[in-house]
């Protein structure tokens, strides 16, 4: 426990270095090393891309063509070294409509890249999310599931249902029991990637940007040597390192939201100078080399 605490303090001090529009850091033996983008590791190992918050169906300021910006994001994914897979951290649609799901399915499917999804609150507006789960989370009837790839254990969680008045995101006892079962026989040396829509750390309680019972999930994850937690929902990059847990939120492909506390409420930033929208949208590339993860955020345009 003492070692754990020591590591927590040390990593907290060393982890956060920003490099332009992106930060890259690697976890080596539990100790993160900050690197500028240009010094990122060579293109070996296993990489995947995170996209988020495509909000198909949204059509207002600052983005009346979210289909076009999703396509730009997908084009950018393909322009990089082709990733092994993609994850979409929710709010695929704006209003859970079948046509919005269809469009996303076809556009993302056309990349030919295996893609795993978790729901955002905009994806479960009808029939308790049944329409989304049937199509996008076939392995998880309630939007959560796990799988292994290249020795990495991926866990997709659903924290957008059963929300309580005044509260935050919610996993619920059933999902937490499933997670405990899913993790219990895994060696602590196996790298874990957790992805869910709402941040699993409290970015801003006043705006509901956090998950009420996240701590119970994180308690199950702390024994692992490398845990990367990827979220969306807030449409901007935020990151935090806590011991072996590395948290990161992605940009949206549709519209940016304000930094907490800078405006009275969340919601789309509408007054964006002409031509600047795409500099506030983007994708995240995650590279895993021998269990260490390196993340790079890139915008759709400079």
């Amino acid at each position: 426990m003492a070692d754990h605490d020591k590591l927590t303090r040390r990593t907290a001090l060393e982890c956060m270095i920003w490099a332009g529009t992106g930060v890259v850091w690697t976890m080596v033996g539990g100790i993160p090393r900050s690197q500028a983008l240009a010094a990122s590791p060579p293109g070996t190992g296993f990489s995947f891309v995170q996209i988020s918050d495509s909000h198909l169906g949204f059509s207002a300021a600052p983005n009346t063509n979210v289909t076009e910006t999703l396509q730009a994001a997908l084009d950018q994914v393909k322009a990089h070294a082709t990733p092994s897979m993609m994850i979409h951290t929710g709010d695929v649609s704006h209003l859970s409509r079948a046509a919005q799901f269809d469009t996303a399915w076809q556009m993302i499917g056309a990349t030919g890249i295996e893609t795993h999804y978790v729901p955002g609150e905009h994806d479960v507006l009808t029939d308790d999310g049944a329409g989304f789960f049937e199509r996008f989370t076939k392995g998880g009837a309630h939007g959560y599931y796990s799988f292994d790839q290249e020795g990495v254990h991926f866990v997709g969680l659903n924290n957008v249902q059963g929300l309580q008045a005044g509260g935050l995101g919610n996993l619920g006892v059933t999902q937490l029991a499933w997670l405990a079962q899913d993790l219990k026989d895994r060696p602590a040396s196996q790298p874990i990637v957790v992805f869910a829509h709402i941040p699993l750390w409290t970015v801003n309680a006043e705006w509901g940007w956090g998950t009420a019972d996240a701590e119970q999930a994180l308690a199950l994850l702390r024994r692992f040597g490398s845990v990367t937690v990827l979220n969306g929902h807030i449409h901007q990059i935020m990151q935090k390192v806590e011991g072996q847990l590395s948290f990161h939120t992605a940009r949206s492909t549709a519209f940016p939201q304000p930094a907490p506390g800078t405006t009275p409420s969340p919601g789309p930033i509408k007054d964006i100078p002409a031509g600047k929208l795409r500099s506030m949208l983007g994708i995240t590339t995650v590279r895993l080399i021998q269990g260490n993860s390196a993340l790079a955020d890139t915008t759709l345009e400079a």
Binding site: E121, L125, L163, Q164, A165, G166, G208
Partner: peptide, 12 residues
């Protein structure tokens, strides 16, 4: 009667 937005539960 207390109510909220089930998508943004901070709205009450």
């Amino acid at each position: 009667y207390h109510y909220f937005c089930s998508l943004h539960p901070h709205m009450q």
